[in-house]
Amino acid sequence: MVSEMKIVEEPRKTLSMHPRKFGMWLFLGSVLMLFASWTSAYIVRRAEGNWLYFELPNIFRWTSLVILASSITMQMAYRSARRNQLSQLKNWMMATAILGLVFLAGQWMGWADLVRNSVYFIGNPAGSFVYVITGFHGLHLISAIIYVLIVLKSSFKGKIGPANMAPIEMCATYWHFLGALWIYLFVFLTINR
């Protein structure tokens, strides 16, 4: 084998993003498709008639505000991480998780309201759809709270900071996504009574 030196042109670098963050966006895309399928099914089914009309529980307005507030606290947590303010980061993360729990409690009370109005999970699909859609949004939110707690734990270990923003960035992305998703679902269900 003979070795020789060659001078060659340098090929361009390829475009590249953080693979995990990118994967997170793809995951959000598939979650969006899941809910899009249900809201589309809702419209298709509703157009066929034989539909039960009822008011959405009032408390959903309040939970919408709660989830908007939680997005703000999440953003504050993110900012604290970027500025390396660890104790504030922890506080904001905890606030976010608590607001998430408040939101879930509110959704639960909303379900109780529905039951009081004789709208049950079993019965006309109009009601079942509301339960399925809010329920699965809630399930996703539970997973997001767990995610927040995981990030919180690693911030207790001092692992989150300007040098390592990816975990909290992804967590915040997920959180904001679920907030926006709820607002969409809430507006959708309100308009398409």
């Binding site: 598939s30 899009a36 249900w38 034989n50 079993i122 019965g123 699909p125």
Partner: peptide, 28 residues
Amino acid sequence: GLLSFPVLFGAALLLIFDRSFGTSFYLS
């Protein structure tokens, strides 16, 4: 796949509710 399989998932979930929980998404 990423765009269409979640839809099947959604459809299958509703079917599961109809089968096992007594909802009426697909039945009348």
